[in-house]
Computed example of a mutant assay.
Amino acid sequence: MGTAKRERQKAGRQARIEAARTAQRKAETRRRIVLSIGIVVFVAAVAGVLALVNRDDKSETAATSTTLDPITDSTPATLPPQVESALGKPCVALSEPLPSGAPDVPIEPGPPPTELVVEDLVEGQGEPVPENATVTINYIGVSCSTGQIFDSSWSRGAPATFPLNGLIQGWQQGIPGMKAGGRRLLVIPPDLGYGSSGSPPKIAPDETLFFVIDLISFQPPTTG
Protein backbone atom coordinates (compact mmCIF):
# COMPACT_ATOMS: atom_id res chain seq x y z
CA MET A 1 0.00 0.00 0.00
CA GLY A 2 2.85 2.38 0.77
CA THR A 3 4.30 1.87 -2.67
CA ALA A 4 0.97 2.58 -4.39
CA LYS A 5 0.56 5.79 -2.40
CA ARG A 6 4.00 6.99 -3.34
CA GLU A 7 3.26 6.25 -7.01
CA ARG A 8 0.05 8.26 -6.82
CA GLN A 9 1.86 11.15 -5.17
CA LYS A 10 4.59 10.96 -7.79
CA ALA A 11 2.01 10.95 -10.58
CA GLY A 12 0.27 13.93 -8.98
CA ARG A 13 3.49 15.89 -8.79
CA GLN A 14 4.27 15.04 -12.41
CA ALA A 15 0.81 16.18 -13.47
CA ARG A 16 1.20 19.46 -11.59
CA ILE A 17 4.61 20.01 -13.18
CA GLU A 18 3.22 19.34 -16.65
CA ALA A 19 0.28 21.66 -15.95
CA ALA A 20 2.65 24.39 -14.80
CA ARG A 21 4.82 23.90 -17.87
CA THR A 22 1.78 24.04 -20.13
CA ALA A 23 0.56 27.23 -18.45
CA GLN A 24 4.06 28.73 -18.80
CA ARG A 25 4.17 27.81 -22.50
CA LYS A 26 0.75 29.38 -23.06
CA ALA A 27 1.80 32.55 -21.21
CA GLU A 28 5.00 32.73 -23.29
CA THR A 29 2.99 32.26 -26.48
CA ARG A 30 0.57 35.03 -25.48
CA ARG A 31 3.50 37.32 -24.62
CA ARG A 32 5.09 36.70 -28.03
CA ILE A 33 1.78 37.38 -29.81
CA VAL A 34 1.26 40.63 -27.89
CA LEU A 35 4.85 41.68 -28.60
CA SER A 36 4.47 40.89 -32.31
CA ILE A 37 1.24 42.90 -32.51
CA GLY A 38 2.93 45.80 -30.72
CA ILE A 39 5.84 45.75 -33.18
CA VAL A 40 3.47 45.69 -36.17
CA VAL A 41 1.45 48.62 -34.78
CA PHE A 42 4.63 50.60 -34.05
CA VAL A 43 6.06 50.00 -37.54
CA ALA A 44 2.76 51.00 -39.15
CA ALA A 45 2.63 54.18 -37.07
CA VAL A 46 6.20 55.14 -38.01
CA ALA A 47 5.49 54.43 -41.69
CA GLY A 48 2.40 56.65 -41.51
CA VAL A 49 4.35 59.52 -39.95
CA LEU A 50 7.12 59.22 -42.56
CA ALA A 51 4.56 59.20 -45.38
CA LEU A 52 2.93 62.34 -43.97
CA VAL A 53 6.27 64.14 -43.66
CA ASN A 54 7.24 63.10 -47.18
CA ARG A 55 3.93 64.36 -48.54
CA ASP A 56 4.41 67.72 -46.76
CA ASP A 57 7.95 67.99 -48.13
CA LYS A 58 6.68 67.34 -51.65
CA SER A 59 3.95 69.93 -51.22
CA GLU A 60 6.47 72.48 -50.02
CA THR A 61 8.77 71.66 -52.93
CA ALA A 62 5.91 72.06 -55.39
CA ALA A 63 5.01 75.41 -53.84
CA THR A 64 8.61 76.53 -54.04
CA SER A 65 8.87 75.51 -57.68
CA THR A 66 6.20 78.05 -58.61
CA THR A 67 8.38 80.97 -57.54
CA LEU A 68 9.73 82.94 -60.49
CA ASP A 69 12.10 85.88 -60.49
CA PRO A 70 9.99 88.36 -62.49
CA ILE A 71 13.03 89.50 -64.45
CA THR A 72 14.36 86.22 -65.81
CA ASP A 73 13.14 85.01 -69.15
CA SER A 74 11.83 81.63 -67.98
CA THR A 75 8.60 79.85 -67.09
CA PRO A 76 7.90 78.17 -63.71
CA ALA A 77 7.49 74.39 -63.70
CA THR A 78 4.06 74.72 -62.06
CA LEU A 79 1.98 77.79 -62.80
CA PRO A 80 0.02 79.45 -59.97
CA PRO A 81 -3.76 79.93 -60.37
CA GLN A 82 -4.83 81.78 -63.51
CA VAL A 83 -4.71 85.59 -63.33
CA GLU A 84 -7.00 87.78 -65.44
CA SER A 85 -5.35 89.10 -68.59
CA ALA A 86 -4.31 92.77 -68.73
CA LEU A 87 -5.04 92.91 -72.46
CA GLY A 88 -6.90 96.12 -73.37
CA LYS A 89 -6.54 97.63 -69.89
CA PRO A 90 -5.08 101.15 -69.65
CA CYS A 91 -2.08 102.05 -67.55
CA VAL A 92 -2.72 103.59 -64.13
CA ALA A 93 -0.51 105.61 -61.82
CA LEU A 94 1.61 103.99 -59.12
CA SER A 95 -0.83 102.74 -56.49
CA GLU A 96 1.45 102.02 -53.52
CA PRO A 97 4.34 103.64 -51.65
CA LEU A 98 7.84 103.36 -53.07
CA PRO A 99 10.42 101.27 -51.20
CA SER A 100 12.97 103.28 -49.26
CA GLY A 101 15.52 104.82 -51.64
CA ALA A 102 13.67 103.83 -54.82
CA PRO A 103 13.08 106.45 -57.54
CA ASP A 104 9.68 107.49 -58.84
CA VAL A 105 8.27 105.46 -61.72
CA PRO A 106 6.80 107.93 -64.24
CA ILE A 107 3.71 106.14 -65.52
CA GLU A 108 1.47 108.11 -67.83
CA PRO A 109 -2.13 106.87 -67.38
CA GLY A 110 -3.84 105.78 -70.55
CA PRO A 111 -3.32 103.23 -73.33
CA PRO A 112 -0.06 101.30 -72.90
CA PRO A 113 2.67 101.70 -75.53
CA THR A 114 2.81 98.92 -78.11
CA GLU A 115 6.57 99.24 -78.68
CA LEU A 116 9.58 99.29 -76.38
CA VAL A 117 10.17 102.70 -74.76
CA VAL A 118 13.74 103.53 -73.71
CA GLU A 119 14.30 106.85 -71.95
CA ASP A 120 17.39 107.99 -70.06
CA LEU A 121 16.38 109.84 -66.88
CA VAL A 122 19.99 110.33 -65.77
CA GLU A 123 23.00 110.09 -68.08
CA GLY A 124 25.83 107.92 -66.83
CA GLN A 125 29.54 108.11 -67.55
CA GLY A 126 32.11 105.84 -69.11
CA GLU A 127 31.74 103.02 -71.57
CA PRO A 128 28.23 101.92 -72.64
CA VAL A 129 26.94 98.48 -71.72
CA PRO A 130 27.40 96.08 -74.65
CA GLU A 131 24.96 93.33 -75.57
CA ASN A 132 25.19 90.10 -73.53
CA ALA A 133 27.08 91.85 -70.71
CA THR A 134 26.54 91.00 -67.03
CA VAL A 135 25.06 94.01 -65.23
CA THR A 136 24.85 95.02 -61.58
CA ILE A 137 21.81 97.22 -61.08
CA ASN A 138 19.12 98.53 -58.80
CA TYR A 139 15.65 98.37 -60.30
CA ILE A 140 11.93 98.68 -59.62
CA GLY A 141 9.15 97.14 -61.73
CA VAL A 142 5.49 98.24 -61.86
CA SER A 143 2.53 96.65 -63.66
CA CYS A 144 0.82 99.00 -66.11
CA SER A 145 -2.77 97.85 -65.47
CA THR A 146 -2.65 97.87 -61.66
CA GLY A 147 0.06 100.38 -60.73
CA GLN A 148 1.43 97.80 -58.30
CA ILE A 149 5.12 97.11 -57.69
CA PHE A 150 5.88 93.49 -58.57
CA ASP A 151 9.62 93.53 -57.86
CA SER A 152 12.29 95.89 -56.55
CA SER A 153 15.91 95.48 -55.53
CA TRP A 154 15.45 98.47 -53.20
CA SER A 155 12.93 96.38 -51.22
CA ARG A 156 15.64 93.76 -50.67
CA GLY A 157 18.23 96.37 -49.70
CA ALA A 158 20.87 95.23 -52.21
CA PRO A 159 21.53 95.53 -55.96
CA ALA A 160 21.17 92.54 -58.26
CA THR A 161 23.55 91.08 -60.84
CA PHE A 162 22.20 89.49 -64.04
CA PRO A 163 23.64 88.24 -67.33
CA LEU A 164 21.61 90.08 -69.97
CA ASN A 165 21.26 87.02 -72.17
CA GLY A 166 19.17 85.33 -69.45
CA LEU A 167 16.61 88.13 -69.13
CA ILE A 168 13.39 89.10 -70.87
CA GLN A 169 13.78 90.62 -74.33
CA GLY A 170 12.76 94.07 -73.12
CA TRP A 171 15.84 94.15 -70.88
CA GLN A 172 18.13 92.59 -73.47
CA GLN A 173 17.17 95.33 -75.90
CA GLY A 174 16.69 98.19 -73.44
CA ILE A 175 19.74 98.06 -71.16
CA PRO A 176 22.63 98.02 -73.69
CA GLY A 177 23.95 101.55 -74.15
CA MET A 178 23.51 102.53 -70.48
CA LYS A 179 26.54 103.91 -68.63
CA ALA A 180 27.56 103.47 -65.02
CA GLY A 181 25.67 105.90 -62.79
CA GLY A 182 22.86 106.20 -65.32
CA ARG A 183 19.15 105.79 -64.68
CA ARG A 184 16.83 104.55 -67.42
CA LEU A 185 13.08 104.10 -67.86
CA LEU A 186 11.96 101.03 -69.80
CA VAL A 187 8.35 100.49 -70.84
CA ILE A 188 8.10 96.91 -72.08
CA PRO A 189 5.11 95.64 -74.10
CA PRO A 190 3.88 92.10 -73.47
CA ASP A 191 5.60 90.56 -76.49
CA LEU A 192 8.99 91.65 -75.10
CA GLY A 193 8.06 90.69 -71.51
CA TYR A 194 5.98 87.67 -70.48
CA GLY A 195 3.46 87.64 -73.31
CA SER A 196 0.12 85.87 -73.01
CA SER A 197 1.38 83.62 -70.18
CA GLY A 198 2.46 86.37 -67.79
CA SER A 199 4.18 85.42 -64.56
CA PRO A 200 1.27 84.87 -62.11
CA PRO A 201 0.41 85.91 -59.54
CA LYS A 202 2.45 89.13 -59.75
CA ILE A 203 2.47 89.74 -63.50
CA ALA A 204 -0.77 89.19 -65.42
CA PRO A 205 -0.88 87.80 -68.95
CA ASP A 206 -0.47 90.48 -71.65
CA GLU A 207 0.86 92.95 -69.07
CA THR A 208 2.92 96.00 -70.00
CA LEU A 209 5.83 96.52 -67.60
CA PHE A 210 7.39 99.77 -66.36
CA PHE A 211 10.95 99.64 -65.02
CA VAL A 212 13.30 102.26 -63.66
CA ILE A 213 16.87 100.92 -63.66
CA ASP A 214 20.04 102.33 -62.09
CA LEU A 215 23.22 100.89 -63.58
CA ILE A 216 25.97 100.40 -61.01
CA SER A 217 28.51 98.50 -63.11
CA PHE A 218 28.85 95.85 -65.78
CA GLN A 219 31.16 93.11 -67.01
CA PRO A 220 31.59 92.70 -70.79
CA PRO A 221 30.69 89.30 -72.22
CA THR A 222 33.47 86.76 -72.32
CA THR A 223 34.81 85.82 -75.71
CA GLY A 224 36.09 82.53 -77.05
Rank of each mutant, 00 (worst) to 15 (best):
G193R: 02
E123G: 04
Q173T: 08
E123I: 05
T134G: 00
L87H: 02
T61I: 14
R6D: 11
Q219C: 07
L186T: 01
P90C: 09
L52I: 13
D151E: 09
R184F: 07
G177R: 04
V187S: 03
I71S: 12
P189Y: 02
T29N: 11
Y194L: 06
N132E: 08
E18Q: 13
L167V: 01
D56Q: 14
S217Y: 04
A45T: 08
S95H: 12
L94P: 06
A47N: 05
L121T: 06
K10L: 10
E28W: 14
K10R: 11
V117S: 03
R32I: 12
I168Q: 05
V43S: 07
P221C: 11
G38E: 08
G38Q: 06
D191N: 01
G181Y: 11
P176N: 08
S196F: 03
V117I: 03
I203P: 04
F162N: 08
A45L: 09
G157C: 07
D120H: 05
I71A: 11
Q125H: 13
L215Q: 03
P190E: 01
T222Q: 15
D57G: 14
R31Q: 15
K58R: 12
V83Q: 09
V187G: 02
G88S: 14
A93F: 10
R6S: 12
I37S: 10
R32Y: 05
R183E: 14
G124M: 01
D104A: 15
P128K: 10
P76N: 06
A160Y: 14
P97F: 10
L121D: 03
K179L: 09
L164Y: 05
L209W: 06
I39T: 07
M1W: 10
V83K: 09
K179E: 12
D120K: 03
Q9K: 14
T22R: 13
T78A: 10
T136F: 04
T61C: 13
N138R: 14
A11D: 05
C91S: 13
V118M: 00
I140G: 05
Q148L: 15
D191A: 05
G2P: 06
P201F: 05
T223S: 15
E96Y: 11
S85V: 06
T208P: 00
G126W: 02
T75I: 12
L215I: 01
A180L: 05
R13I: 06
K179T: 07
L167W: 03
Y139E: 04
L121F: 00
E207N: 00
M178P: 02
A77K: 12
I140C: 07
V83D: 04
T61Q: 15
E115G: 12
S153F: 06
G170R: 01
T78E: 09
I37W: 10
F218Q: 00
V92P: 09
T66K: 02
V142H: 03
G157A: 01
Q14V: 07
A45I: 03
M178L: 04
V41S: 01
T61G: 15
Y139W: 10
P106G: 07
G157Q: 03
L50V: 11
Q148M: 15
T146Y: 09
D191F: 04
S197W: 00
W154V: 07
S95G: 15
